[in-house]
Design a protein around this nucleic acid. Structure first.
Length: 791
DNA sequence: GAGTTTGAAACT
DNA sequence: CAGTTTCAAACTC
């Protein structure tokens, strides 16, 4: 415990630095409040109010974007004083708000340290199999340890200095399965803490008590949540050496991933039948809130907070049904998750290693994979991974693009099938590679959520889609074979694979790397360093490249909503235009081959292009303007067997837009608008975007975000809907990149693809728009299932 | 499957 | 910033 504690203290210190604002208040508020709380009057007030006293100001400060209805400073408890507490506060709020029931008596008890202690004990007494011996702080990989950690997290916040023991850090629950009864597990820990003099259990106590009370009712929910929480809790760096890299390193992407993973977990659980629809709704809310969550800065600053919070939220969610009503709580949860997601890899790895079965055990991968270096990443739950893979993500990234129209067609159907397979046989030999970057994940999650709204059946679909298995055997088979295999399998290029010989897959030459993906089995690369094992190297290289070109990993193809009004009829049909950000430089291909990034991305050439003899069927560039008539387009389309009529229409749209917009642009249109348009007309026949753009782009999610499938069969090509989604996201991306936040500074996180994730973070005034856009996306999701043919 | 072409990425 | 080299995908045979 000693070491941990020290580290935790350091952390807390750093946190304080980050959140300096709060520090002063801490001391000031604490003393007075504590007194106040002790007073009978305070207790009385508490009893009267359904709202719990504790948390408040700090949180509010931290999350400006969040509007908590909470009852603030007046009820601020002493706990507020510590930063961690502030984190906890969120949780408290959540629990509090979500559960009025919890209130009065419990709250009163909690308000005082003794009360808390008492509460904890009482709860603990209920526990049956608790082993006090399980050390709370010991650094062991043992399941018990994990559990204890979880407990810590739950109990985490403490007024006492001891509380500083970092709940967040290194907190991970390897054995969700071990947590059969959340209350059982958690409560004991609480007790343990209390015994050790750590009394900051308000949140814990509440959460625990709630759990205990509702455990029966919650049942499966709890477990699911816990498992989810476990994921969240894992903060280990991929390397496992560092618990915390710091908020700065964690990107929104990761956050997104977090959210996604959470959602996925929920979905998965539900799919399995373990969880009810409530979970899904929560997830959905979470997602939405996440979108709203907005400020990256805040997120970064409070990552730690989130960690704790997420857990608490999860717990609360599991125990109470009120969560849905609490946007805030969900929001925190989502945010938290994001941060955590980034480090999921390590966590999952550990999970596997320990051989503990996760909450969604069904999804758990074979343990064997974990130990091997190459397979470190391969263990994610099928759901999460799959979804990522399937829904590649935000931002069109040519690098990510891979599929040809052909592939797309083929894959499209296969994807569903594969997803189903995954569900049915999650434990297939294939392992999962976890993407480092989250951007994709988010997307996928978002998409997945849509189904949730509609119902369990939809959920299943989503989960199926998400289901994604990757074979982690790297370089095992001959490259060519692998490649062929994928191709023939109809695997989409969304699952990238490279054939690098000299670049070590650490340069943009490598499609995988460029797409933010780790190389996987299908890759035939040599001397590949783009593997989870070399995550540090990968990240470092990424940073270097980004330092040279901040947009290096940004989507190459951006879609924007051009002036809709100008477009006229088309506007309704085709909300967005797309163009290659930098433009191509084709000399010989006439922009009619995939050598041309514009063509490959399914977008017309623009003024930005320096191509010669441009014949891009998606839109030619002539001089400064694109020239192409519908007739021409159709002709070209006809010529191009793979291109559909629909695409042509989109092309036209693009062209028109491009002509009008020369600049980068995505900007004029707010993401929200765009997303809405998509949502509204996602499926209109006319609205379809260039196929290629859809297809390939999806993979942008990348490394850190999306998974790649080792097995072709599992690779799922993005569905039409997905494509749309991706497109939308891409729109956002450019803004982000261009925005005040430099991709590097702001969004940078441990994950290579951090940038992509981002939107919320940037200072954009648009943050609201982004938020809304995400919401819209979710809404649009429901329709998604219908689009993709089921077999 | 080998070889060629192509253009982006990287380097100077 | 332009020119050159390197690289790996795309393409052809």
């Amino acid at each position: 415990m000693g070491e941990e504690r020290e580290s935790s203290e350091r952390e807390s210190e750093s946190e304080r630095g980050g959140v300096a604002m709060e520090t002063p208040q801490r001391n000031q508020i604490m003393t007075p409040i504590s007194r106040f709380e002790d007073s009978p009057v305070f207790n009385f007030l508490n009893s009267l109010s359904p709202i719990k006293p504790v948390k408040s100001i700090h949180i509010t400060q931290t999350f400006n974007s969040l509007s908590f209805a909470s009852v603030p400073s007046v009820f601020t408890s002493p706990h507020v004083s510590s930063l961690k507490e502030s984190r906890f506060i969120k949780r408290h709020q959540v629990s509090d708000l979500s559960k009025p029931e919890f209130s009065s008596e419990n709250v009163a008890k909690v308000s005082t340290s003794e009360g808390i202690k008492y509460f904890a004990h009482s709860s603990a007494e209920r526990l049956e199999n608790f082993d006090p011996g399980s050390s709370v702080c010991k650094a062991s990989d043992e399941p018990s340890y994990e559990c204890s950690k979880l407990a810590m997290t739950l109990t985490y916040d403490s007024n006492s200095p001891d509380s500083d023991s970092t709940p967040c850090r290194g907190t991970r629950i390897n054995c969700v399965s071990d947590l059969v009864d959340a209350s059982t597990l958690l409560i004991p820990f609480v007790q343990d803490f209390s015994e050790k003099g750590i009394f900051g259990c308000e949140g814990h106590t509440e959460g625990i008590s709630q759990i205990d009370q509702t455990s029966e009712a919650a049942g499966c929910h709890w477990e699911c949540l816990i498992s989810d929480a476990a994921d969240l809790l894992v903060f280990e760096s991929p390397n496992g050496t560092e618990d915390f890299k710091g908020p700065s390193q964690k990107s929104l992407d990761s956050g997104t991933r977090f959210c996604t993973s959470l959602i996925n977990d929920l979905q998965t659980t539900q799919a399995v039948g373990a969880v009810g629809s409530d979970e899904l709704h929560r997830a959905e809310n979470l997602y939405i809130q996440l979108g709203e969550g907005g400020d990256e800065k805040e997120i970064a600053e409070t990552q730690d907070m989130f960690v704790n919070t997420s857990l608490s939220n999860c717990v609360a969610g599991g125990s109470s049904e009120n969560i849905d009503d609490e946007p805030v709580s969900n929001l925190y949860r989502g945010m938290r998750r994001r941060c955590l997601v980034f480090e999921m890899t390590g966590a999952r790895r550990k999970h596997l290693e320990e051989g503990s079965s996760c909450g969604s055990t069904m999804l758990s991968l074979p343990d064997g994979n974990v130990s091997s270096n190459d397979k470190q990443l391969a263990h994610l739950k099928p759901t999460n991974d799959s979804s990522r893979c399937i829904l590649p993500g935000i931002g069109l990234h040519l690098n990510a693009l891979a599929t040809t129209s052909k592939d797309y067609k083929v894959v499209k159907h296969e994807a569903l099938a594969s997803g189903i397979q995954l569900l049915s046989a999650p434990e297939s030999s294939a392992s999962f590679q976890e993407p480092l970057n989250s951007s994709v994940a988010v997307t996928s999650s978002e998409i997945d959520l849509g189904p949730v709204e509609n119902g369990a059946s939809e959920l299943e679909e989503a989960s199926q889609v998400s289901g994604y298995v990757v074979n982690e055997e790297f370089n095992q088979s001959s490259p060519k074979k692998k490649r062929r295999r994928f191709e023939h399998a109809g695997e989409t290029e969304s699952c990238k694979r490279c054939n690098c010989k000299k670049s070590k897959c650490l340069k943009l030459y490598c499609e995988c790397f460029a797409a933010g993906l780790y190389c996987v089995e299908p890759c035939s690369c040599q001397d590949c360093f783009n593997k989870p094992v070399h995550e540090d190297t990968v990240l470092e290289t990424r940073k270097q490249i980004e330092s040279r070109n901040p947009l290096a990993f940004a989507p190459k193809v951006v879609r924007s909503i051009d002036a809709v009004p100008e477009i006229g009829d088309h506007s309704s049909k085709t909300p967005a235009s797309a163009r290659h950000k930098r433009g191509c430089n084709c000399k010989k291909s006439g922009c009619l081959k995939k050598y041309c990034e514009c063509y490959q991305g399914g977008v017309g050439c623009s003024i930005n292009c320096r191509c010669e003899g441009c014949k891009n069927t998606f839109g030619r560039k002539v001089g400064s303007a694109l020239i192409e008539t519908e007739a021409e387009l159709e002709e070209e389309q006809t010529e191009t067997s793979e291109k559909s009529v629909v695409e042509s229409s989109s092309h036209k749209f693009v062209i028109q837009n491009d002509a009008k917009q020369n600049t980068d642009s995505v900007l004029p249109a707010t993401p929200t608008q765009f997303s809405r348009q998509l949502a509204q007309q996602p499926f209109s026949s006319k609205f379809k975007l260039p196929r290629s753009s859809f297809l390939s782009i999806g993979s942008s999610s990348g490394l850190y975000g999306s998974q790649r499938s080792g097995k072709p069969s599992f690779c799922q090509p993005p569905t039409k809907f997905e494509k749309h989604f991706q497109t939308v996201r891409e729109d956002e991306m450019p803004e982000i990149l261009h925005g005040n936040c430099s991709p590097i500074s702001g969004v940078k996180s441990a994950s290579p693809n951090n940038k992509r994730v981002s939107p919320p973070h940037c200072d954009f005034g648009l943050s609201p728009g982004q938020r809304s856009s995400r919401k819209l996306i979710l809404q649009s999701i429901p329709s998604f299932p219908s689009l993709t043919p089921k077999h």
